[in-house]
């Protein structure tokens, strides 16, 4: 070759031999196929086993519609609430120094550490008929356990960490220089938040919200404890699926399950898109930074 470029096969210093590479890749692919792809496909195969009509019928049946509605309502309340909680918690932790900060961070992680069933039981103990505030609630005709408020509370609890966990490292990395600059330039607290802080964290925030939403709609354990499984009233999609399955109504069970599977796929797609965007922005920043 002209110029004496060495085009001989590279010596095997930094890479494994071909058989080893094929073996390792093969194991990884087989694992993913067996444990992820096959079950996912089987959900849709089972759902459509007896044709379109039955699939659709299972979804428009009143109990199913009620479960879908309840799931959407729960997510519609829990996600915005945790958006606000997560944002304020992350703001406090990332921008201020105070006593008990590490304790607060640990508390935020608590819902991840506690079993969802325990999370549900907490609310039964507090608001249930035999619970601490049960009698008072009964006197005032307020229903929380075995009703929608209980389901929302349990969901808020289990989805609490997502937004905060996503934002804390991001906001800590960004520091508060830009906020201080905004203040010196005369911006009020609100102006600073809307014009400087929020635009800087919007992708991280979206990412947290997507994950929180997926969990809110798919949560089983905690909701199962507080829901009471009243058909057409306090069943979310996951609970409805379980009931159908236990009644050997496989087509309907898988039809509803396919909705959750679909949600998972959409979530994954959104998540990858947000990740791709943030990485591209970060790469751009780095590229410009190194150009100096």
């Amino acid at each position: 070759m002209a110029g004496g470029v060495n085009n001989a096969p590279r010596s095997i210093v930094t890479t494994e031999t071909r058989p080893v590479r094929i073996l390792l890749t093969g194991i990884a692919l087989a694992f993913i196929g067996l444990f992820l792809v096959v079950p996912l496909v089987s959900v849709f195969v089972e759902a459509f086993r007896q044709g379109w009509q039955l699939y659709l019928a299972a979804l428009v049946e009143p109990d199913a519609v009620s479960a879908i509605k309840l799931t959407l309502i729960t997510a519609a309340i829990a996600v915005p609430l945790n958006l606000v909680f997560g944002l304020t918690a992350a703001w406090a932790i990332a921008k201020f120094e105070f006593r008990g900060k590490s304790f607060l961070i640990t508390l935020i992680d608590l819902p991840f550490a506690v079993s969802p069933v325990v999370a549900g039981l907490i609310y039964v103990l507090l608001f249930g008929a035999q619970g601490w505030w049960g009698p008072w609630l009964a006197d005032h005709d307020i229903k929380i356990i075995f009703a929608v408020p209980g389901i929302v509370l349990a969901t808020v609890f289990v989805t609490f960490p997502f937004v905060a966990r996503e934002l804390i490292p991001l906001m800590e990395a960004q520091g508060s220089d830009e906020e201080q600059a905004a203040m010196v330039l005369g911006a009020s607290g609100w102006q600073m938040f809307w014009r400087v802080t929020l635009p800087n964290i919007k992708w991280g925030l979206l990412y947290g919200v997507i994950l929180a939403n997926a969990r809110a709609m798919g949560e089983f354990g905690a909701v199962s404890v507080v829901s009471g499984h009243v058909r057409g009233q306090t069943n979310t999609i996951p609970l409805h699926v379980e009931i159908l399955y236990n009644e050997y109504n496989f087509v309907a069970a898988f039809a509803c399950a396919s909705l959750l599977a679909l949600l998972a796929l959409v979530t994954l797609a959104l998540k990858s898109w947000v990740e791709w965007r943030t990485e591209r922005l970060a790469a751009e920043d780095r590229r410009h930074a190194t150009e100096e």
Binding site: E178, A181, A182, A187, R195, P199, D285
Partner: peptide
Amino acid sequence: VRERQVGFVFQHYALFR
């Protein structure tokens, strides 16, 4: 700080990215 009418130039610029 909002009412002091000072201009502040930060070490790492702190431009709104």
